[in-house]
Computed example of a mutant assay.
Amino acid sequence: MQKPSMERAFRQALTDPSVRADVRDRLGWDDSQVSRFLSGQMGLTIDKIDAAVECLAMVITSRKYLDFLAYGAQVGTACYCVRAGMGECGTR
């Protein structure tokens, strides 16, 4: 399994004919800007970051939040043991 990559996501979106035009239009780019971006000759300006992340169907979140979700899933949101005062599941 590959680690998620913004570079890979942009390359896929900007080379896929079914989504390229939508991404290009939402970023306010023309075809020459897309080519320069993909070749590394042009970057993404800060005012386009939100639109770019949205175009890629991605969401920005913090590690702290993801750690909380992982811990909550491990303990279980409906854990009977904790609610009955017997500690965390699997600790006794």
Rank of each mutant, 00 (worst) to 15 (best):
F10K: 10
R36Q: 07
L27C: 06
T61S: 15
E88C: 11
M6Y: 11
G40S: 01
S62V: 09
D47I: 00
L14Q: 05
S35E: 15
R36W: 12
T15H: 05
Q12R: 10
V53N: 01
G43Y: 02
S39C: 10
G40H: 01
C89K: 08
V82A: 15
C55N: 01
T91F: 07
S39N: 03
A78M: 13
D22A: 09
A57L: 05
G87V: 08
G72F: 07
K48M: 00
A13D: 04
F37L: 04
R24V: 10
D31L: 13
R83Y: 05
V59S: 11
M6K: 07
T91K: 01
A13I: 05
D30P: 07
L38S: 13
Q2D: 14
F37K: 07
I60E: 13
G76Q: 00
R24Q: 15
Q41L: 05
T91N: 07
G40T: 10
G76V: 01
T77P: 06
R26E: 08
L69G: 00
S39H: 13
E88D: 03
G90L: 00
F37W: 04
V23Q: 04
F10R: 01
S5D: 05
Y80W: 11
A9M: 05
F10T: 09
P17V: 11
L44Q: 00
R24M: 06
D31P: 12
L66S: 03
L69H: 05
C55P: 09
Q74H: 00
E7S: 13
I60R: 12
D16E: 06
R83F: 08
A13K: 00
R36Y: 12
T15P: 01
F68R: 01
M86G: 08
A21L: 11
T61N: 13
T15I: 09
K48R: 15
R92C: 07
E88A: 06
D16A: 11
Q74L: 07
A84G: 15
C79P: 04
K64S: 13
M42H: 05
T77C: 08
R20N: 02
E7R: 11
G40Q: 02
R11K: 04
D31Q: 09
A51I: 01
G87C: 00
E88F: 03
S32V: 15
I49Q: 11
T61A: 09
A52Q: 03
D25K: 03
Q12K: 04
A78C: 07
R92F: 11
C81G: 03
S5Q: 04
R24Y: 04
G40M: 04
K48S: 02
A9C: 10
